[in-house]
């Protein structure tokens, strides 16, 4: 982990409200360990934005990193205005990685909304290792998609409004894909309701799964203790530390589905 001044190589809208940015980050890349890891980006140095913004790594190519982000608020809007050749102050790489996808399972990769970056990263990694995975990407509407719906190659797009790919959330598609496979393992990242639905489904059906959790973050280094998430099935004790709550920045962002609680 280090803080690096990264030169922006590309910053463009790839679908409605979805942006992709590539920058040079040789230092951060030298510590990178795999899909799942994330960065903390400082939006400006004038304290208009106190906390860095966590962004998952979508791709690493030589000494360059790509992120994919959705316009969400003031901060991400400002990020869209970053010019090629400009410099971003970035802390990383942070967090743990997806694991088990190289085992005896068929990886089912599910990304929704802003959570598709680490899933696409894992998809590419599977391709590199010639592991045949299935990819399910969900969006509210067709214009938010930038890939092709290609079921024969295991790529399924879904839209809440049915304007592209399979209609509905990612869940019906996931259930259908899992039903056709003997030994699926689910890897998912997305908004909270999606992760919660995912968790219920995989636990009920005893499907191994890893979920990448998003959290409001203050520092990314464990110092602020802000990104707490409740652990699942924890015995309440009168006095404990780090047993009821986990810190997403240090222990995550990737958790086994049975580990954390979204309630």
């Amino acid at each position: 982990m280090l803080i690096e001044q990264c030169k922006i190589i590309r910053n463009e809208e790839i679908a409605g409200g979805i942006w992709e940015m590539e920058f040079s980050a040789p230092g951060i890349v030298s510590y990178y360990t795999g899909p799942g890891q994330f960065l903390e980006i400082l939006l400006d140095n004038k304290w208009s934005f106190t906390v860095r913004r966590p962004m998952s790594i979508a791709n690493v190519e030589e000494k360059r990193i790509t992120i994919i982000y959705k316009i969400f608020g003031r901060g991400t809007t400002l990020l869209t205005e970053s010019k090629v050749g400009g410099i971003l102050d970035i802390l990383g790489p942070l967090g743990n990685v997806f694991s088990g996808w190289q085992g005896n399972y068929v990886p089912i990769l599910v990304g929704g909304g802003v959570g598709l970056a680490p899933i696409l990263n894992l998809f590419r990694e599977c391709q590199k290792h010639q592991i045949h995975s299935k990819l399910i990407i969900g969006a509210k509407t067709g214009r938010e998609h930038f890939m092709d719906h290609d079921p024969s190659n295991g790529i399924f797009l879904t839209t809440d409004d049915g304007t592209l790919g399979n209609p509905g959330t990612v869940m019906p598609s996931l259930k259908k894909v899992c039903a056709d496979i003997d030994n699926p393992m689910v890897f998912a990242c997305g908004p909270l309701p999606m992760l919660k639905g995912m968790q219920d489904f995989v636990i009920q059906n005893k499907i191994p799964a890893q979920l990448s959790v998003e959290s409001y973050m203050g520092c990314g280094t464990g110092l602020c203790q802000g990104c707490a998430i409740k652990r699942r099935n924890v015995k309440e004790k009168a006095h404990s530390y780090h047993e009821r709550y986990s810190l997403v920045c240090m222990d995550g962002p990737v958790y086994s589905a049975s580990e954390v609680s979204f309630d």
Binding site: T50, Y216, Q225, H239, S240, Y241, H242, Y245
Partner: peptide
């Protein structure tokens, strides 16, 4: 004694600052 700290959300960004309520999470 050790303390778990408060349930999330524990922090939020504000103009030129932030608000925290960690709840003294510590090892004891």
């Amino acid at each position: 004694h050790p303390r778990e700290g408060n349930p999330p959300p524990r922090i939020v960004e504000t103009p030129s600052g932030m608000i925290n309520s960690i709840g003294l999470a510590n090892v004891g």
